[in-house]
């Protein structure tokens, strides 16, 4: 790996992307402004998924539970315990990290197909629990966090999360932090060990690395990012429902990451953005937008398994992180 030649270029590219999104926040028309805020939060979800799937090569079919852990951690603590917005956010992130640690310890005893099924089963249990405890969660119907609660009082000034511009900038802030963290992970020794595990776990173990500990850290980092996305979603959009814990929300990040390019830092954002608009435009013509999701998954895995940025990196830009 030629790490040094592309380092400066890579960091510059990421800063340009963040600056570009910042600029767009002032010029975009109202509708697309809202969409982009949502896409950035969901992109954090898929970046979290990418840490585990792209770098460590572990295909999980249960990441909806981490997103939902953040969502419910924030939502339930704010609605039932009356916590403030930052405390709710922290509760969501911690809930996700703890859940990821527990699930990781158990699920990482398995490999390959069994890992996918175990994560899917755990996620299904989480989903069913949100239905079972509908006294607090109100199940499918979900909870709405009151508008008055979604804000932050800073002395005389009030930061209102329901205001589109504040929402956009907060989403961008979280997006930028997680994007740079992913870049850091990808360039760190930890990230390289993960890639080594993905390529050949036995050899990595033989070289003296504790592969279990590294994989577990990857699950926790990944789960924490996803929970942060979930908690932010609860705060910024105010809705907490069990749909977000369903199987579909475990499949979406897989699709987004595959589309954008696994193990690329910007791929997940690109995939999320593209898919959001495809579904958005398609649902204007037909209600069968899931047909497009399905066909795209099949076509991607058949002809384009590296995704957009994965292919770009392979063909032209070797330095792309």
């Amino acid at each position: 790996m030629k790490s040094d030649t592309g380092c400066g270029k890579a960091i510059a590219l990421h800063l340009v992307v963040i600056a570009g999104l910042f600029g767009l926040g002032f010029v975009l028309p109202e509708y697309h402004h809202g969409v982009l805020a949502r896409v950035m939060v969901l992109a954090v979800f898929s970046m979290g998924y990418n840490v585990l799937f792209g770098y460590a090569g572990l295909l999980s079919l249960g990441h909806a539970m981490f997103f939902a852990a953040g969502l419910y951690g924030a939502g339930l603590s704010m609605i039932h315990l009356g916590w403030s917005a930052p405390a709710g956010f922290a509760a969501g992130v911690i809930a996700g990290a703890v859940l990821a640690l527990g699930v990781g310890v158990l699920a990482l005893r398995t490999t390959g197909v069994a890992f996918m099924i175990v994560t899917m089963m755990f996620s299904q249990v989480f989903y069913l629990l949100t239905l079972y405890f509908s006294v607090w969660t109100r199940g499918d119907e979900g909870l709405v966090i009151p508008q008055a609660r979604r804000g932050l009082d800073l002395g005389a000034m009030r930061l209102d999360f329901t205001d589109p511009m504040t929402r956009y900038m907060l989403a961008l802030g979280l997006f930028a932090i997680v994007l740079l963290l992913t870049l850091g992970v990808a360039r760190s020794g930890f990230g390289r060990v993960l890639v080594a595990i993905r390529e050949n776990e036995e050899r990595t173990k033989m070289l003296g690395y504790d592969t279990f500990a590294n994989k577990l850290s990857a699950v926790v980092v990944s789960g924490t990012f996803c929970a942060a996305a979930g908690a932010a979603y609860a705060l910024l959009f105010g809705y907490v429902g069990s749909t977000f814990a369903s199987v579909q929300y475990s499949i979406f990040p897989l699709l987004w990451v595959l589309l954008g390019g696994a193990a690329t830092t910007l791929g997940p954002f690109l995939g999320t953005l593209f898919m959001y608009y495809v579904v958005d435009i398609a649902s204007g013509y037909t209600s069968a937008y899931m047909l497009i999701v399905g066909l795209l998954l099949i076509l991607l895995i058949l002809y384009f398994p590296k995704g957009v940025l994965g292919t770009v990196r392979e063909r032209w830009l070797r330095w792309l992180p």
């Binding site: 295909l59 895995i301 398994p305």
Partner: peptide
């Protein structure tokens, strides 16, 4: 095995 899972998820939605 992994590619098949992704493809059959696609098939599921179709």
């Amino acid at each position: 095995p992994e590619a098949t899972i992704v493809a059959t998820i696609g098939l599921l939605y179709v």
